[in-house]
Design a protein around this nucleic acid. Structure first.
Lengths: 248, 248
DNA sequence: GCCCCTTCTCAGAGGTGCCTCAGAGCTGGG
DNA sequence: CCCAGCTCTGAGGCACCTCTGAGAAGGGGC
C-alpha cells in the first residue's frame, strides 16, 4: 500500500497510485516548503516557478491538482487556469493569493469547485483544502475502500465539512486555531509531535511568535476535550505532545 | 453512483450516465466559470466560443442541454438554436442574454420549453434553471428512483417550482436574494460554506461588493427562518455559515 | 531534599469578525 | 407621480479570539 512518509496511509488516486500535484510559485522558499509538505502526504510533487513552466510541467506530469500562486512573473494565475483547463478539464486548482489582493476576482473564478487560501497560510490548511478538493472531485479515494469515516481517534470524531468535533457523542465547540491544532493532532495519532513541528504546520509560515502559544492552545484543547474524562492529550516532557485513544 | 464534486448525488440521464452540457459563450472568463460550476454538478461539460464551434461540438458531444449566449461573434443565438434543432430536436437550451436586449424575442422563442437568464446572473440561478429544464424535459432523473422530495432540511421545506418555503408547515415569505441564498444553503446542508463561496454562487458574477452583504442576508434569513425557533443557521466564526436540522 | 528547567494556568490587552441598525438608491406597480 | 419593496453601504458596538507576560506547579538530576 502507498503510504506517507509519516507512515500514515495515503490518499491515493482511484487506481492506487500516488496523487500527482504541481506546485506553482515563484518564491523558491515557499515552493520548497509546500513541496515538502505535500510529499510528506505521500503525493508525487513537482514544482514550477512561472506560468510557462507550469503549463509545460502539467503536460508532462498530468497532475490531479495544481497549487497555483495568482501572481506569477510571466502570466496571470487565471490565464494559467484557463489554459490548463483547455487540455486537462478535470484538474483541481488551489489558488494562493495575498489577503487584500484581487480576492473578488478569485472568488468569481473558483466557483467551479476550485478553492483558494490567502497568504500567509498554514501548511495544515493548504493540505486540508487540497485533500478536500481531491476528495470531492472524485480523484482520490481513501486507502480503505469502505466508507470514509472521516477523522476518528477513539471516541473523538471530527467532521471536517461541518467543522464539527464530538467526543463520546458530545459536541465540542472550538475556535479556528483550536480546530486546526486538533486536526493536526488527529491526523497524527499516537505520534509525538514537537512544539516546533506543531508551530510549523498549524501556524502561518510567517508567524514570529514563540512555542509558548502551542502550550497555551494545548491547554485550551485539554479543557475542552479532556475535561472530566480520561485524557487523550499527553505531554511527553522534552519531546512534545501526543494524542492517543484512551485504551491505547 | 454518479456524484457531484460536492459529494451530493447528481442529477443524471435516464440511463445513469452523466448529463452532457455544452456551454457556448465568447467571453473566456465567463465560459470558464460556467463550465466549472456545471462540472461541479457532476455533469459532462464542453465549451465552445462561437456558433460554428458550438454546432461542431454538438454533433460530437450530442448534449442534453446547451447554455447559449444570444450574442455570438459569428452568428445569432437563435440561428444556432434553429440549426441545432434540425439535427437534435430533443436538446434543451438555456439562453444567456443582456437585460435590456431582445427580451421579448427570447420569450417568444423559449415558449417551446427552453428558458433564459439575463446577464449578469448568479451561478445558482443558472444551475437551478438548467436542472428545471432537464427535469421537465424528462431527460434527467433523480438518482433515487423513488419519490422526489424536493429540498428538505429538517422541518424546512422548499418547493423550487412554486418558489415557496415553509418551516414546520408555516409559510415563509422571502425576497429573491433571500430565496437564492436559502436554496444554496439547503443544497449544502451540514456543510460549512464560506462567505466567499456564498458570494460566488448566489450573487452575480460581476458583483464587486464585499462579503458584508452575505452577513446581512444571513441576518435577514435568520429573522424569517429562525425567529422564535430552534436556530438552523449557525455561524462558524472564521469559517462561514452552516445550515443544520435542529436535532443534530 | 534542593534546585533548575519545563510546562501549565491565569489574567488582560489588543485586534478582528460578526451582527444590527439606519438610511440611500433603485425599480416596478398602482 | 408616488409608494412599497428590495438591495446594498456605512458606522457602531459587542463578543470572541489570539497572543503576551508572569507566576504557579511539577518533574528530573544531583
Amino acid at each position: 500500500m502507498n503510504t506517507t512518509r509519516s507512515g500514515r496511509p495515503a490518499l491515493t488516486r482511484p487506481d492506487g497510485t500516488a496523487l500527482r500535484v504541481l506546485v506553482v510559485d515563484d518564491d523558491p522558499d515557499l515552493s520548497e516548503v509546500l513541496t515538502g509538505a505535500l510529499r510528506y502526504e505521500g503525493w508525487q510533487v513537482r514544482a514550477a516557478a512561472d506560468g510557462a513552466a507550469a503549463l509545460a510541467a502539467a503536460r508532462e506530469l498530468r497532475p490531479d491538482a495544481v497549487v497555483l500562486d495568482v501572481m506569477l512573473p510571466d502570466m496571470d494565475g487565471f490565464t494559467v487556469l484557463r489554459r490548463l483547463h483547455e487540455t486537462q478539464p478535470e484538474v483541481c486548482v488551489l489558488f494562493l493569493t495575498a489577503r487584500d489582493a484581487v480576492e473578488d476576482r478569485i472568488a468569481g473564478l473558483t466557483a467551479g469547485g476550485d478553492d483558494y487560501v490567502t497568504k500567509p497560510f498554514s501548511l495544515e490548511e493548504v493540505v486540508a483544502r487540497l485533500r478536500g478538493l481531491l476528495r470531492r472531485a472524485g480523484m482520490a479515494r481513501r486507502p480503505e475502500p469502505e466508507e470514509d469515516p472521516g477523522l476518528v481517534v477513539g471516541d473523538l470524531v471530527m467532521d471536517e465539512d461541518a467543522r464539527e468535533v464530538t467526543r463520546a457523542g458530545e459536541l465540542i465547540e472550538l475556535s479556528p486555531t483550536e480546530f486546526e491544532l486538533l486536526r493536526f493532532l488527529m491526523r497524527n495519532p499516537r505520534r509525538v509531535l514537537s512544539k516546533a513541528q506543531i508551530l510549523d504546520r498549524v501556524w502561518s509560515y510567517d508567524f514570529g511568535g514563540r512555542a509558548h502559544v502551542v502550550e497555551l492552545y494545548i491547554s485550551y484543547l485539554r479543557k475542552k476535550i479532556d475535561a472530566g474524562r480520561e485524557p487523550m492529550i499527553h505531554t511527553v516532557r522534552g519531546a512534545g505532545y501526543v494524542l492517543k485513544p484512551v485504551t491505547g
